[in-house]
């Protein structure tokens, strides 16, 4: 069996994600970093889609790509940090960071490869229906998630208030 379109799409996305991640952390300009992050997030959304989690994919695109990255861009501009970011990093530190990172990555990959995952296949185009998600979110039974849902909503509320409070301009006292 030949390579399907799906697979082509997947690998393209994969390459994009990997390249963009690397660039996001190595580029010298922070605005560019944010842009690469945006691409990575898009790629992630695509992967969710390939997996059949279209709802998750949509959320990813809306919240992350649509919301958070915009926030980043704004704050970058607000803090005037869209300049050159090429700070000097000590050689020793660079070496140790690279070593840690590479060894870590190597170790994880080694574990993944040697773990021997079975080649499970997943049905193509088998989407997770939104209804099922909605049911699970408001149910209280086993494998239903109303409590975390509420908790997250409280968290978001708290965050909102917190963010406003923190970022609020201090009133000048006479």
């Amino acid at each position: 069996m030949g390579i399907t379109l799906q697979e082509i799409a997947f690998y393209a996305v994969a390459v994009c994600i990997i390249v963009c991640s690397v660039l996001a952390v190595t580029t010298g300009k922070i605005l560019r970093a944010a842009t690469y992050l945006l691409f990575v997030l898009f790629g992630t959304g695509a992967i969710y889609g390939i997996l059949g989690y279209t709802f998750l994919s949509a959320v990813q695109l809306m919240v992350y790509a649509g919301g958070i990255v915009v926030l980043y861009v704004f704050s970058i501009l607000l803090t005037q940090s869209d300049k050159d970011m090429k700070y000097h990093i000590r050689r020793g530190k660079l070496v140790s960071v690279l070593l840690t990172t590479l060894i870590g990555a190597g170790l994880v990959l080694f574990l993944l490869v040697t773990n021997g995952f079975a080649l499970n296949l997943i049905p193509q185009g088998d989407e997770l229906p939104v209804e099922q998600i909605g049911q699970a979110l408001i149910g209280t039974d086993k494998y239903q998630f109303v409590l975390p849902f509420e908790v997250v909503s409280f968290l978001l509320l708290a965050c909102m208030i917190g963010a406003i409070l923190i970022a609020r301009k201090e009133e000048k006292k006479d």
């Binding site: 140790s96 960071v97 840690t100 060894i103 870590g104 170790l107």
Partner: peptide, 13 residues
């Protein structure tokens, strides 16, 4: 975090 990660790597090894 670097120490943390290094520790984890070491432990895993």
């Amino acid at each position: 975090t670097m120490w943390f990660l290094g520790g984890i790597i070491l432990l895993t090894l």
